[in-house]
Structures are given as structure tokens and as C-alpha cells.
Design a protein around this nucleic acid. Structure first.
Lengths: 269, 269
DNA sequence: TGACACCGTATCATAATATGATACATAAAA
DNA sequence: TTTTATGTATCATATTATGATACGGTGTCA
């Protein structure tokens, strides 16, 4: 089989991880056959790996349908992650205050390669789409948070990112023109914040301010999503933005930049 | 080596998972040696497994200190979990409303073997310990949520649980006497809710109401934690409890009971 | 400065472990 | 009923993981 490399790579472990990754928002429970199909592994391998994950408590199994599901252990991993991320402890209390103050949903996003990951969400009111987005991974260029973060990196690197990083069309209103995205980011360089309309969801406006680290670069952003029905661009800049920036600045100074990086493939999901 | 069983158990995968589980609130970043020590694996195995996890993007690595950390992928797993858990989608919108209404922190907890797992948290105000508790796993008997859930199971099973399930002492005020815990749970059988004082944190009061499924049993609970400085038991019963119960009942009817169970060892952490 | 201990990294011959083809059983579809 | 698909179990083979060993770098104690 495709031995990824040399002797310090254990294929069995990697294959097991592929099974875990077979689950997502569209595939919440999978049969053995589906698991095999989605992971690209043959039936026998899938059988053994899934059984191992089951025995280790990483997968639940419905005794009737024999379908597999993510177990609570997946949340325990998130718990461990939270403690390991130095930014989380710093930011959460301030984000709580911000969310209470604004009365709108506030998110914390971090850069992860060419994507951003939502690390924490403080929901307020009836959130349009009430689903949690913790752990959601999106192309950085297509999000206000990603653009805010990119606005803090050196010009050359920034331009390279704008030219090469992935983009995805979520709604009819999603910007797919890189020139337009460049304008948006350059505007953010000047303004110190990024704002985008209807990129992810129709009638949704996102504002984000970068959380700047010691090196002057942002690795994260505070983001706020509001409805275009009740908010205008001007009103956001006037009422939300100042508080958003205060919060981001309050988090910034003591933040140890996050230097580690996994070299996983930049999967174009 | 200790082949857990037969031919449908892949030891390498299980060992890799042990590395992941080596990270927790007290061990947020680990060197290779520490990883080996905590997982109980020898240096070579740890080296290979950690390297594989790194290549697959499951671990980050600080290029200077060479220490490993949980990666963003751990949050992506949580994301997949949220979509797979039918209760989450049902409950979150109602919990948001409840949290806004109460102005206090609201949690969703699920039973997982003899422990409970916090699945979602809606923080309000300055939460005493602002840390997130999503994914935190606690002995069911030591929590208000666990007692609320246990109050809905048949008597025989309930008694067996009270006699055998694990207990842990978190504060000087934590109840370790099973007779007392039995009283607390039997009271919950009558009242329909559980309340506990200073079990996890000093001066913290927890109230929980069970979310009852089709089979009449609860697999989850809505929980609220407040400060004993500003709340008395009576005030909680008067002001918080009714809303808490309404919310739990609103979630209950349409909830498909969660039948799958991993057979992992009941680790006494 | 040198000696020592520790850690991360790399290599390699060996055998233990994972492999995947195959067969059986059960359940769903025709 | 027959047919198809899916979950489960078995087994001989060689591919794959193993772990002992060695090397280079770094920090610590004399």
C-alpha cells in the first residue's frame, strides 16, 4: 500500500484517523460499508479499524442498525485542546463580556494554514442558524476573520495568500473574484478591521478585528455576525466596531504567538 | 505485546489513541519523552506514532522546543460530534433562550457510562471559573446533572449505580458518603430535579433537570451553576427552577434516545 | 573546560502484526 | 422464492511494525 514514507510512519494509525475524518456535518452516522467507501479503505481494513475504535471508546455503535457514530471521546479531545491553546484562556472572559454588552453573537477564530477555525462561540439571541460552529473550518479568504488576520501579515506574504489560498462559494453572494478579495483585505489593512456581507449565509454581515501578537501579526480574530435585516454597515461601524476593537486589543498584548504548525495536507474541502 | 484480543484489533491504532489521550488540562504540551512516559509506550514507538500524528495534522509541534500540542483537528472532531448528536440540534436554541432569560450560565450534560459529559455551555456574566467545560467528564454521582439523570432510571438499576459508580472528591465539601448521595437522588426522584452545593467548586450551587426520552429515561440534563454568594437554595427553586424545567420539557418530547454505547473501560480518572 | 545525563533523531535485522481474499450468516430487496 | 448487500469470522502470507542500538545536540554540574 501507499507507505507515506519511511519507517517512522505508521500506516495503520493514519488509516484509523481517516475513519474518524469520514464523519462530518453531512455524514453523522455511518455503516461499515459507508465507512469503507468514504475512507477509501477495503472492507477488511475498515472492519478491523472500526472495531478497534469501537473497543477504545472512540466510536459508538447502534446495536440495531450497526451504524457507527462519534463518541463523547471526541468532545474530550476538544476539552484537552482548549486547555492547550493559550489564547482561549485569555480571550474567553473578555468575549463573554463583549457578547453580553453587544447582545449579538461573538466568535473567536484562529488561522490554521490557509483556513480559519472557529474556536469558541458566544451565542446571543436567537442565532439565525442556531447550530454550533465550534471547530468549523473555512477558507480564510472567504471569511471576515480570515481577512482581518491576513491584513496584519507582511505585504508579500499577504499577496501570495490572496493569489493562491482556496476560495469556496457558499451563497450566490460569495465573492469568488480575487481582485475583489484583495480590495477587501487592503481596506482592512487601512481600517484595522474587515467586514463582509452575505459570504457564508445570505443576509448575514460579519465584522472581525485581528488579535495581534508579539510579532505584530495576528493569528486570531474576534468576529461578530449580525443580520442584515436589523443592521446596516454604518450602524455596525458605529455601534459594534469600537467594542470589538477594544476587546481584541485587550486580548492582544499578553498573547504568546502560536508557532507550532502541523504539516497536514491543505485539504480543499 | 498485550494484544487486546484477536485479529480484529489493531494495536498500532490503539497506541496512537493513547498518545492523544495523554493530553489533558494538566498536560497541555508534551515532549517526546513525556509523551512516552504518560502513554506507557517505549521511546521508539512513541517517536513513530507521534510523528505519524504530526504528519496527519493531529499534533502541532513547536519547532524550537519540539514539544507536541493538540492541533485544530481536535476541534474539527468536536464539530463532527455536534452534528452527529441529535440532542444538540434540538437543545441549543432553547438553551440560548434560557441563558438569556436567566442571565446565568447554562450547561447541557449527557450521561456517558458512569460519568457525565458537558456537551454545551452557554456562559453569562463573569463565570467564576471562565474556562470552558465543553467535553469535561465527571463522575455522574458527584454532579447535579448526573443525579438528575439517575433519578429517572428504574429503582434497581439506580441503586446499583449508587453503590458502584465512582465518586471523586473535588472540594472539602464534596459528598463522599453514598448514603447521602442516595438521599439526594431519591429526593430528585420526588422533586424532578437535583440540586447540589459546593460539589465541584466551593460556593457554587448546581441545579439540574432531566431531559426525558421516549423510554421515560433521561440521557441528558439541563444544568445551571450559580454562586452561593448571590443565590440561596430557596431563591433558586423559586426563580430558576421553573424555567429550567420548562426548557428541559420543551426539549424532551422529540428527543430520540441515544442507544449506542462504546464499551470502553470505565476509567476511574 | 570537561564529563555526564538527557533528549530528539535515525537505522536496521527480525519476527510479530496487519493484511485482504475468502467464506458464512443475516437482513433487505426483487 | 431468488438475489443483492452488509456485517462477521477465519487464516496463511509477507508486509509492516518493532525496539535495541547508535549518533548528534543541548544543557547541567564539577
Amino acid at each position: 500500500m501507499e507507505s507515506k514514507q519511511n519507517t517512522l510512519y505508521i500506516a495503520s494509525l493514519a488509516k484509523g484517523l481517516r475513519l474518524l475524518r469520514a464523519f462530518d456535518e453531512g455524514n453523522t452516522e455511518l455503516s461499515l460499508a459507508e465507512l469503507a467507501q468514504r475512507s477509501g479503505l477495503d472492507k477488511s481494513a475498515t472492519q478491523r479499524l472500526a472495531n478497534t475504535l469501537y473497543m477504545e471508546g472512540m466510536l459508538d455503535k447502534d446495536p440495531d442498525t450497526r451504524r457507527f457514530r462519534p463518541s463523547h471521546a471526541w468532545l474530550q479531545l476538544a476539552y484537552a485542546y482548549y486547555w492547550s491553546d493559550p489564547l482561549v484562556g485569555q480571550a474567553i472572559p473578555k468575549l463573554i463580556d463583549l457578547a453580553q454588552d453587544l447582545g449579538e453573537t461573538v466568535n473567536l477564530a484562529e488561522i490554521s494554514g490557509d483556513h480559519i477555525v472557529y474556536v469558541s462561540r458566544l451565542p446571543c439571541k436567537r442565532t439565525y442558524f442556531a447550530a454550533t460552529i465550534i471547530g468549523r473550518r473555512l477558507p480564510a479568504l472567504s471569511t471576515s476573520a480570515g481577512r482581518a488576520i491576513l491584513s496584519t501579515v507582511p505585504e508579500a506574504e499577504r499577496n501570495a495568500a490572496i493569489d493562491t489560498w482556496p476560495i469556496r462559494k457558499f451563497t450566490p453572494g460569495t465573492t469568488t473574484d480575487r481582485a475583489q478579495i484583495r480590495d477587501s483585505i487592503e481596506q482592512a489593512v487601512v481600517d484595522g478591521f474587515a467586514i463582509s456581507t452575505g459570504q457564508m449565509i445570505l443576509n448575514e454581515i460579519g465584522v472581525a478585528t485581528p488579535i495581534i501578537g508579539h510579532d505584530g501579526r495576528a493569528h486570531a480574530a474576534v468576529q461578530c455576525s449580525v443580520s442584515a435585516h436589523t443592521w446596516s454597515r454604518e450602524k455596525i461601524v458605529q455601534d459594534i466596531l469600537p467594542k470589538l476593537q477594544d476587546t481584541a486589543n485587550a486580548i492582544s498584548p499578553s498573547f504568546q504567538p502560536y508557532r507550532g504548525t502541523a504539516q497536514g495536507p491543505s485539504d480543499p474541502d
